[in-house]
Write a protein that binds this DNA or RNA. Structure first.
Lengths: 123, 123, 123, 123
DNA sequence: GTGGTCTAGACCACT
DNA sequence: GTGGTCTAGACCACA
């Protein structure tokens, strides 16, 4: 599987974001090893250094820990930490921006909820 | 006042976005002249070339027109055009992404949108 | 002038340390621009990316700031901040280690002060 | 007890240093056997190969000797040898570096060493 | 096996 | 001019 990279953001950054998403979703659990730099590089057809940079970012943010000679592992408590920090970011930055945008575009909130109801009934 | 530039996006792009916002809000009306490149550069403490680049982007998108010797002006119909294109962008790109994010963070979209509907009916 | 790199530490780290030393000594003052990545790379005969990595570290530590399109600059207050943090590091980590080492090696503190007196008279 | 490894230095190197410290302090005496590789590995929760590498370093430096079938032993004269070499290292490398650091941080060496001299005379 | 560093060189984005 | 990103490939250190 080849991936669709967003041209406007560095690959390493997108890789970082995807990993965070996977931790939040639970498809990458705490204490799980991250796929090795070489493996990811081969799969995604990118340079190992690019992967390495993404992983380093995660280490710097305290989400992932390096065990020397063994690889990278999701830190214990990482999911909880991410939930808190990402929710705060959403609340203080993303949602206000969305609200302003909806106001500017005069978008009706009801129209946004319609498609959700369908999903709800499908559950 | 010095402005808060987002470090992650080009200044010219942010300048461009702000102008679009002002047109949508109406604080910059159709046929209004845009403030001159020099003036903006001086006010925001940025390079005139950066301002020019932002203005050129607006020209390229057909939102603004250059009248030789007079300056830049908001095009007639620009607001309507922007409303349509920005709404489409919101519907197809921004909102789905926000929904996915809310799902990951276990935030209920309805709870955030309900209060807005009431306001809308009060109008 | 070619530089003597310590083989045991990454070049980018040594470059980072040297810059900090220069700021502490005052040979690189606050608000001064750091020499450009390309210039340093050419002078020291190393890869620009290596220099870049060193500069990025300084940015991450809040000692240096990037002005887009202009280059890197020593932050206002950087020297004071460094004095505080480095003194604390010396007090809590380096000096206790030195003391333990002297004790183990049964080194007489007086013998360490002798050469200093000479310097003092030279002043 | 899990040990606090310094992230910046190889574990085998830190293990090596600790052993040298123990010999200097006397808690590991000449002709004493070093704890077995397995035992150390189990205690410190590290890879036996890492322990082996540390021990090999000590053999290479002539501080420890391997007796086939019996294990590793501190060499006769090791403590004296270490005192000489470590003192020389301290005098020529470590102390000058510390002095330069103190100068940069505007710390007076005498003020740190004076209290020690008194203790020394009390002995 | 793991990740880290460095090189040489290309290309891009920003000001 | 400035820094940032990515590639391809080599070499090293660690466990």
């Amino acid at each position: 599987m080849t991936h669709n990279w967003n041209e406007n953001q560095p690959i390493y950054w997108q890789l970082c974001e995807r990993t965070i998403e996977r931790i939040l979703e639970g498809s990458l659990d705490e204490a799980d090893p991250l796929p090795s730099v070489r493996q990811v590089a081969a799969e995604l057809q990118i340079n190992p250094i690019t992967v390495s940079k993404a992983y380093q970012l995660l280490v710097d943010e305290g989400i992932v820990e390096k065990r020397r000679g063994l690889g990278m592992f999701v830190k214990t408590g990482a999911r909880k930490q991410l939930l808190l920090s990402e929710r705060e970011k959403f609340r203080s930055q993303i949602w206000p921006d969305i609200l302003a945008r909806m106001q500017r575009l005069d978008i009706d909130p009801a129209s946004l909820l319609e498609p959700l109801k369908k999903n709800a009934t499908n559950k």
